[in-house]
Design a protein around this nucleic acid. Structure first.
Lengths: 302, 302
DNA sequence: GCTACGTCTTTTATCGTTATAGGACTGATG
DNA sequence: CATCAGTCCTATAACGATAAAAGACGTAGC
């Protein structure tokens, strides 16, 4: 095979939402803009929709014939890029309990298991190596360092340095800076969580991510901002597989964020710093607790 | 082509130094250890040396027949891995004056120019993206951010944070920690530079690199240590192409390092911090000066 | 005359293949 | 009997090929 058509499939699924029976579709360029793909891909989608009997397409006129049904959608697992599949599989392996630090990793086995090419795995490994969980020995294999307690501590050491500096920079931003408006919006979203039913708290990680990214953005430093990608990825996968106390954890975070936001608003760097530290300390303890639990499970199991 | 035999060629050249006429060579395993390659590669080298009439090889006996001549060596440019060639070419392009921030970069053109495959370029770009000089837009091209003043400032902001923390950690290391002995050795090397002829100062960058790596090591934080790779690479190429005032710059650095080392030795974190800051400030000004000079050159030229 | 479409070219993502390097096992030999 | 070499297998580095997606350009239609 060659390049996968996941962009096409993903955009196709998205485009189905636009099909209201009896209406007509906008221009190709407009569709391209809305779907975030090129005109070439839009044309491929339109062709496919014609073939599926969803629309009639004659030059400028794109007439919707019928509303899409469930079977018109491509299955979700076909809409993910190969790189994303590799990432998921790799993370689930690294963060699962059955990996010992220092164990070596075989590119071609992994590729075969996943049904992707060695290059796909290889490129992922290169990209991923900056996350500090794997290391390469030249002309030898990759070594998995393990998602250990040491890793979490090192990660948080840098995170704290970066986020404190960003928080201080945030406080100093002029009031007319758009970040303040963004903070207002994010605060409102937090307040909505306060009264929301517990189940909705499951959506919190996304907000959490946006909140911390907003703060890191104030540093105006690409290295600081990029580093948040590492944290974000680790947390994303980590919490996906460790759901214990998820709701309490999120509820606590909402409250801590609100204090943190108040600190930023106060205009006092020390206040912001205080609540920032407090929140990060909680986050670190949570991660460490989970790391230890996983380690114990491994020691018991092995 | 497939995998390049640069490891073989490099090790072959190195192995020629072991050929003293009339002597016999050690075992394959021993040679492998000394050359830092596998036994397979050693055997390939021995085969080649037999073919070149350099040695006679019969089972355990490897008799040296003649001393190697200049033409027995592989040309140096053939001993570099493809990845290294890509790196060099790319850096010389990015750090040269004719690149404007925001300009886009074409993988296949570059590959063709260099005579390497697109994958080689691609993998380099992925690896290099963490350095903050390039960015990828999914399914689109790479964008060169340019080695601008902003880049230098952001780099130094993080460098200062990391190195100050490492220096403080260094001061707190117990006296029996091997890092102190390493510091002694490095200090001695610095003192040797003090009285050395100016020409020898050209060798200073290597010592500089080892000195700062030693300090960063005290942080015991993989993210801090890894970040020094970014700095190291940038400086390596930057100073390779900007030789203005090189000797003064190095002489100043030697003196600042000696103060810095004294600060670390004093046991006072504040002293270490003071001289660390001072040295980093000088380094930043030097880099910024060069960045501005390059920018001016571009503005005049364009 | 501006916008939208038809067509073509360029570029990227991904694949499968191959030569080189690493490494394990085992019998030979001093 | 420990070390060394013969043999073979595996893994990685690098390549070239190919289909998907992006993008450029000219022309047709409102």
């Amino acid at each position: 095979m060659s390049k996968s058509d996941t962009v096409f499939k993903e955009a196709y699924n998205q485009s189905l939402a636009l099909l209201v029976e009896g209406s007509v579709l906008p221009s190709e360029a407009e569709l391209a803009r809305r779907l975030g793909v090129s005109r070439t891909t839009v044309r491929a989608i339109l062709d496919a929709q014609v073939a599926a009997g969803l629309i009639a397409w004659n030059r400028r006129l794109k007439q919707v014939l019928r509303a899409p049904r469930a079977e018109d959608y491509f299955p979700e697992d076909q809409t993910d890029a190969v790189s994303l599949r590799v990432e998921r599989a790799f993370m689930s392996r690294v963060l699962s309990s059955d990996i010992r630090p220092g164990s070596q990793f075989n590119e071609s086995d992994f590729a075969r298991e996943l049904g992707v090419s060695t290059s796909a795995v290889r490129e992922f490994m290169i990209r991923f190596s900056r996350f500090g969980l794997i290391e390469k020995q030249r002309n030898r294999h990759w070594v998995l360092n393990g998602f250990t307690e040491a890793f979490s501590l090192e990660l948080f050491e840098v995170r704290e340095m970066f986020e404190l500096r960003s928080a201080r920079a945030f406080v100093r931003l002029p009031r007319e800076h758009p970040a303040w408006a963004a903070l207002d919006a994010i605060e409102a979203e937090h307040r909505a969580f306060l009264d929301a039913p517990r189940a909705r708290l499951g959506d919190f990680p996304d907000l959490d991510d946006r909140f911390h990214r907003l703060i890191h953005g104030a540093s105006s430093n690409r290295f600081i901002i990029d580093f948040y990608d590492v944290i974000s990825l680790i947390f994303h996968y980590h919490y996906q597989w460790s759901k214990i106390d998820e709701m309490e954890r999120n509820a606590t975070a909402v409250r801590e964020h609100l204090d943190y936001i108040a600190g930023l608003r106060s205009g006092e760097e020390l206040d912001a710093e205080f609540y920032c530290r407090k929140h990060l300390a909680t986050a670190r303890e949570t991660l460490l607790g989970a790391t230890r639990a996983r380690q114990d499970a491994r020691n018991d199991g092995g």
